[in-house]
Design a protein around this nucleic acid. Structure first.
Length: 293
DNA sequence: CGCCAGGGTGACG
DNA sequence: CGTCACCATGGC
């Protein structure tokens, strides 16, 4: 994917009171942390305090983030100031206003993007995205997030963030592979426990990464697309879950008795390289709207 | 109580 | 190829 718009990325330092570490300050004109971090694309974030701070975990680091328009305030742990990671994770170079302008050629997506300002796509590390979405089958977001944080507490390495209680990182692939079933059950993952262990072992024993993600136990076409978009950065596809299918039937008049590939191809044909952004805005808008009723 | 959730698998015809 | 019961769990 190419970006032709000149991007401005500032790196400044601020130090809020009551914090024992400094924050980096990166120019990011369009970002809503609640929509982006507490929605359906990551389950590894949670609100940290009443002051708008969020805590995120990956297999290797924890992130503190807050949005103060037009800046993203952030810090990484235990290795500080990892700008390369932040730039990739938040897709800082994506020009959201330009993307939204192009997407608004479709009136329905136009309505969606108008009502989900600041929703960005993330590009998350691969393996934790695999495990996160292994937990997603036939469950709602609240429960997925609950299991992720329980897994971290039970299996994840603890690190200390100055001034904040210790934080457990997302479990490593090795930790998932060698976890006891009692530990996985404690994390409320249900029947997905065996998929977690089998997939973790398959990852560790593979000589090279598998191209076909559905080869992993517990990963079918939908979860594979989640990983394609949210970890691999493929913007030409978008996952079709029950909500997306529902809105395609209701708002676009598509038949409701087709298979997964039908809806996926329809979206890709219509939205091209912006399919992932279109799908994510439609999803969060439609889900939020239905939930509010 | 019954239904639903960012589904996948395996058995059966 | 298409259909369908089943999987485990909490929230509503």
């Amino acid at each position: 994917m190419r970006y032709t718009t000149a991007m401005v990325i500032e790196r400044l330092k601020v130090k809020p009171k009551n914090f024992l570490f400094s924050l980096n300050k990166t120019y990011l004109p369009d970002f809503d942390p609640e929509l982006t971090l507490m929605g359906g694309q990551t389950f590894s974030w949670k609100p940290l305090s009443s002051e708008g701070f969020f805590l995120g975990i990956t297999q290797t680091k924890a992130i503190i983030a807050k949005y103060k328009r037009p800046y993203l305030l952030w810090q990484t742990f235990p290795n500080r100031d990892d700008f390369k990671f932040i730039e990739e994770y938040f897709r800082i170079k994506d020009d959201l206003s330009k993307i939204k302008t192009q997407l608004s050629q479709d009136p329905i997506v136009g309505k969606a993007v108008a009502q989900t300002p600041g929703l960005r796509l993330l590009k998350q590390p691969f393996y934790e995205t695999v495990f996160s979405f292994l937990l997603s089958s036939n469950r709602n977001i609240k429960l997925i997030r609950k299991s992720v944080w329980l897994l971290a507490k039970i299996l994840g390495r603890a690190i200390k963030i100055p001034g904040i209680a210790q934080v457990h990182l997302f479990p490593t692939t090795e930790a998932v592979a060698s976890a006891r079933y009692s530990q996985l059950k404690e994390a409320k993952v249900g029947f997905r426990a065996k998929f977690l262990k089998l997939t973790a072992r398959a990852i560790l024993s593979a000589r090279q990464p598998t191209r076909d993600l559905t080869a992993y136990p517990g990963i079918g076409p939908k979860i594979a697309d989640c990983i394609e978009v949210f970890a691999l950065g493929n913007t030409y596809v978008t996952p079709v879950d029950v909500w997306v299918k529902r809105l395609l039937v209701e708002l676009y008049g598509l038949p409701d008795n087709k298979h997964y590939l039908f809806y996926k191809k329809w979206l890709s044909n219509r939205f091209g390289y912006l399919t992932a952004y279109a799908g994510q805005h439609l999803y969060e808008w439609y889900r939020g709207r239905s939930r509010a009723k």
